[in-house]
Design a protein around this nucleic acid. Structure first.
Length: 482
RNA sequence: GGGGUUGUGGUGUAGCUUGGUCUAUCAUCUGUGGUUUGGGACCAUAGGACCCCAGUUCAAAUCUGGGCAACCCCA
């Protein structure tokens, strides 16, 4: 086995396979600081495509981008009690004294620093709603088990922080954002998700309600792809945010916050990639198609003809809006290039050689399933665009099928235990007690309630809790998680 | 937080048990020259490594202790 490609199989050793795909495809690399990775141009280009897509969506909702400092005075954290408890263990502190003799935190999330400003900016109901998003880096000093993209000490994310006059408006947009997250992850990254509400136990520290989109990886573990929180009025009270209403009285507004991170890149890799390397969903792929010219040195005039044709096709595809690349490197054989681009995950490969030109055709190969077809050059652009959409759908359908096959309904604790040992996703009734969730987590090795699936979270009539046997309140999804 | 495994050129490795021509193996890689090119081409030639610190010893890649790092399992 050579060392350029992936040397383990996805199903044999997923952790090793994952890091090989991420490193060898050129998405990311380790750095000198534990838990902090370098996002290389390929990985960053994907992130940029995600940012572009999402920026367009939220600007339609009236959300504006801004930037707040990465340093937060310690006292700000203490204003909201649950918030400080929730994040304290993983905050990185700057021990050097600030001008006010106070320790300074590197942001693990920005509620504290942003809401201090919000308190200054919001005076009247006319200032609401206030909708701000920021793209930034975040530091959470994880102690163990760091993994590129999935759990790192520094990561990139977006965090939206909105303020509303009424609860109804706030709750509505919390759910609107959740829908935007579903759209982003399913329609851009081809990863199927389940929308749900987190239990009290799994809520964001300080939030009134937390909603999530959960994805499920091929090994049966859940991965939280994005969360949208209804913060209620707790932060407004803690940070002294008030507005004068039309009734000429002061009120505390309602707030939301919502975020997703570069973890999505990790989810994308795990969901779709294979033993040959990265498989990129076409809509985020920085390069959607690569053209490999087949040249023959002995016949320079023929090679020249092939290269000319290849350049022509490149332009044609570019004009049609396809992100295309021509690989005219002379020092590598076509076979090497095939493998190289497969490792890098490019969705479509186009081969053009002398025989093809004679017949006004080319070979089109799909990265996701290796399927090759012969395409007439006159209809190439159309065919490529069509195939990109087809690949997106195939990736999504395949992932969806995997999830459906792994999902089981369980009624007893033994069934739940067995399902978790088999790395399944279990749907069961639960009483909703936080203590019960703690016991399950301890007894079943990290198993948590992922969420109450939206629209179908109410317990059946007379159903009992899978764990405590008490009357059930909710239907919940259980699984191990990343 | 607990346990285990592993650190050798850019990358993957052999050597470590039993210390000694190790002046460190092989492949890939990088540079140069030439022949090649429809699934990771070949020849010639050059380049490049024992994680760090201390100890044992006539002698350490190899043994001991500590540190650092990576990976895996469990909480």
């Amino acid at each position: 086995m050579n060392e350029i490609g992936i040397t383990v199989k996805k199903e044999d050793d997923m952790p090793e396979w994952y890091s090989q795909v991420v490193l060898k495809s050129g998405m990311a690399d380790y750095s000198a600081v534990k838990g902090c990775a370098v996002i290389r141009p390929l990985g960053y280009a994907i992130w940029q495509n995600i940012m572009d897509f999402f920026n367009e969506r939220i600007s339609l909702m009236g959300v504006e981008n801004a930037y707040f400092p990465m340093f937060i005075p310690e006292s700000f954290f203490h204003r909201e009690a649950q918030h400080v408890d929730g994040f304290a263990p993983e905050v990185a502190w700057v021990e050097q004294k600030s001008d006010t003799n106070e320790r300074i935190a590197v942001r693990p999330t920005s509620e504290a620093i942003m809401y201090d400003s919000y308190a200054k900016w919001i005076r009247s109901h006319r200032d609401l709603p206030l909708r701000i998003n920021q793209w930034c880096n975040i530091v959470r000093w994880e102690v163990s088990d760091v993994k590129i993209f999935l759990r790192s000490r520094e990561f990139l994310w977006q965090e939206g922080h909105c303020v509303y006059a009424t609860e109804e408006e706030c709750q509505k947009e919390v759910l609107d954002i959740l829908e935007e997250y579903r759209r982003l992850v399913e329609e851009l990254l081809a990863i199927p998700v389940i929308k749900g509400e987190k239990s009290e136990h799994e809520r964001f520290p300080g939030a009134k309600r937390t909603y999530t989109i959960e994805s499920f990886m091929p090994d049966g573990k859940a991965l939280q792809a994005g969360t949208s929180h209804n913060l209620g009025q707790g932060f407004a009270k803690a940070f002294n945010i008030t507005f004068q209403g039309t009734d000429e009285k002061d009120h505390h507004p309602w707030q939301s916050s919502w975020g997703f991170s570069t973890r999505l890149l990790g989810a994308m890799v795990m969901q779709h990639s294979d033993d040959k390397g990265l498989v990129l969903p076409p809509r985020v792929a920085p390069t959607q198609a690569v053209i490999i010219p087949i040249t023959i040195k002995k016949k320079p005039e023929l090679s020249e003809q092939v290269l000319t044709k290849a350049k022509e096709l490149e332009k044609q595809l570019k004009d049609a809006g396809v992100r295309v690349k021509l690989d005219d490197r002379e020092e590598y054989s076509p076979g090497f290039k095939y493998s190289d681009w497969e490792l890098k995950g490019v969705p479509i490969r186009i081969e053009v050689g002398p025989r093809d030109i004679e017949n006004n055709q080319c070979i089109l190969a799909k990265r996701n399933d290796g399927e090759k077809s012969t395409v007439n050059l006159d209809s190439l652009s159309e065919k490529v665009k069509e195939t990109l959409e087809q690949i997106h759908q195939e990736l999504f359908d395949k992932a969806k099928k995997q999830i459906d096959e792994k999902t089981v309904q369980v009624k007893t604790y033994d069934e739940l235990k067995k399902a978790m040992e088999e790395r399944k996703i279990a749907i069961a009734h639960h009483c909703g007690d936080p203590e019960s969730e703690d016991v399950i987590k301890a007894e079943l090795g990290g198993v948590t309630t992922r969420c109450r699936p939206m629209g179908e979270d109410q317990a059946d009539e007379g159903a009992v809790c899978v764990h405590t046997g008490k009357p059930a309140k909710y239907k919940v999804i259980f699984s191990k998680n990343y």
